[in-house]
Design a binder for these strands. Structure first.
Length: 114
DNA sequence: GTTTTGACGTAGC
DNA sequence: CGCTACGCCAAAA
């Protein structure tokens, strides 16, 4: 089996995140699971931390509770919520309302709500 | 090469 | 129902 390049891990994460439809959100665990590294949800978050230099809509990624756990990494705690609300997502108490409905699973990759 | 950390997740109390 | 503890994995120091 070909030795997989760890650096590719970051790239995969970005590839998934940038494909999150506008007005939708997903979780770190879902992305990690999609990448085949179910237990590396933390690593996904870490990858998004350094994704600031990339064009990554990291604000669409929250934890499995739908909570904006990473809002503090946007420079200002209000930026993440502001971006989400800008896409039609209601955020209350650092928590995505109707999260279950807005959740976008990368495994589907295509929106099934047609 | 070992140690620490980190935007998580699940289980236990 | 909320907090704590542990696990998990990859990157950076």
């Amino acid at each position: 089996m070909k030795t997989y390049v760890p650096k590719d891990f970051y790239h995969r994460i970005y590839e998934v995140v940038i494909q999150i439809p506008e007005g939708r959100v997903t979780s770190y665990g879902a992305i990690a699971k999609y990448l085949g590294a179910k237990g590396s949800a933390r690593t996904v978050g870490y990858a998004l931390t350094i994704s600031k230099k990339e064009n990554i809509p990291a604000h669409r990624v929250v934890n499995r509770n739908g909570m904006l756990s990473g809002k503090h990494h946007f420079g200002s705690p209000d930026i993440m919520q502001r971006l989400l609300e800008s896409e039609g997502i209601t955020v209350k108490n650092d928590q995505v309302m109707n999260f279950k409905n807005l959740f976008w699973d990368p495994s589907h990759f295509l929106d099934l709500s047609h």
